[in-house]
């Protein structure tokens, strides 16, 4: 059991995109605010703050989840992956990001970080999804620019490409 007092700053350490990072959080600090304000990881966007819009979706221990419905103190000691971790260290976009760019799957980009995180988790579990499965997964995200069609196309394209060219193992 671990008890954290209210209205005090508590040390929270996470493995953010493979790097150990620490910051301070009150018990009531949301993970979305902790990432942006405390760790400076502003790639995670904040929209509705009640779990509907999907903009703040990150991966916690690999699983896509809303950062706005997670307390920072809940992820102490866990792995958190955000959009900043998708491209490689030289800034080369990964295959999913490149497909989004080719397919015009984003315009303003506000929703994109969350969608990329959902797609990353989803494609690991469902490597060859149907269009309907992709649309069901995307129903957890609001995009007001694209009409979703180019996003669906990008996801299906990546899924197909990964079948013919298995992703190289990049974990060191």
């Amino acid at each position: 059991m671990n008890r954290l007092e209210q209205e005090q700053q508590h040390l929270v350490t996470v493995t953010l995109n493979g790097v150990s990072r620490s910051g301070r959080a009150e018990t009531r600090t949301l993970l979305s605010d902790f990432l942006r304000h405390e760790l400076g990881a502003t790639g995670t966007h904040v929209g509705c703050e009640h779990g509907v819009c999907g903009a703040c979706t990150v991966r916690i221990d690999g699983v896509a989840a809303r950062a706005c419905l997670t307390l920072a103190v809940q992820v102490d000691g866990r792995r958190v992956d955000t959009v900043e971790g998708l491209a490689d260290r030289d800034g080369m976009l990964n295959d999913l990001q490149q497909a989004f760019r080719r397919s015009h799957a984003l315009q303003c980009g506000f929703c994109t970080a969350g969608i990329l995180n959902s797609c990353t988790d989803f494609l690991e579990r469902v490597p060859m999804p149907t269009e309907q499965q992709v649309r069901d997964m995307l129903s957890g995200h609001l995009c007001r620019c694209t009409g979703y069609t180019p996003i669906v196309a990008a996801v299906l394209e990546v899924a197909a490409a990964r079948q013919t060219q298995p992703e190289e193992t990049i974990d060191a």
């Binding site: 059991m1 671990n2 008890r3 954290l4 007092e5 209210q6 209205e7 009150e26 018990t27 009531r28 949301l30 605010d33 703050e49 009640h50 307390l71 103190v73």
Partner: peptide
């Protein structure tokens, strides 16, 4: 849209 304060017990 931020929670009020509370004590947190894991």
């Amino acid at each position: 849209m931020k929670p009020a304060s509370f004590e947190y017990i894991r």
